[in-house]
Amino acid sequence: MKNPYQPIEAIIEDIILETPNIKTFVLRPKEYIEFQTGQFVEFGLAGVGEAPFTPSSNPNVKEKIELTIMKVGRLTNKLHILEKGTIATLRGPYGKGYPLDEFKGKDILIVGGGVGLAPLRSLIYALLAHPQDYKNIIIRYGARTPQDLLYKKEILAWSNFKNVNLVTTVDTADNSWKGNVGVVTTILKDLPLNIKNAVAIVCGPPIMMKFTTLKLLELRFSPESIYLSMERNMSCGLGKCGHCRIGKYYVCRDGPVFRYEEIMNIADIWG
């Protein structure tokens, strides 16, 4: 019988410095881990610990997985001082990802905040693998400062797709910044989409998801057309340890992606 607590080895092939406190780890697992975009893995270090991360890489690439990780706590501080060639641990994938089938033939609005663009990058790769399946792909991305913006090269590349419309913003600008200034909800206007046939996918810190959701509802998005990536403390990833409960759901088992409709009546969902 397979032991669900058993991790596999994954070699860290490359480490990309994205921003002063965010790095992307390029992993080559010993066995293929096939994930659907939006699902998460438990990534960590033997003898140190593990934590849930949603891959930021293309789900169609089997032999490698990329995780974009911000330095925020005990484990991520340790991860950030690692060097290439280190052997790390991986379990998964777990949970339910983005339901791509439900997105087909629709306008897709993707709203990211900070490191929340990481899972969305994986989604964008998956969408752009078959861009003709979707109408407009509208990406709105906000970070705190210009130097906190992730994936600057990819952002340029995505903008070149015919049906992609991409706008970024920063909360606080510096002298070099010529773009929008303001939180991400300030660039959610004049969206080139048909609300009646559109979905919105949001990922970012809880406060950003809350206000983005309120803004989307104001724009007449229906609660069932808004997809959120919920965040809770997870330990096992298997739907057993009990830590990530919201209402009748476990985030690890029933999420991490939820339609707003599913969770809107649960108290204190924003944490």
Binding site: Y5, G44, A46, G47, V48, C236, K240, C241, G242
Partner: peptide, 22 residues
Amino acid sequence: CHCFLLSESGSETVFKKIRSWD
């Protein structure tokens, strides 16, 4: 009640995942 927490222990060669009631 069934909640638990996973933690780590181990040496250079063999590592262990520990499950504790939480």
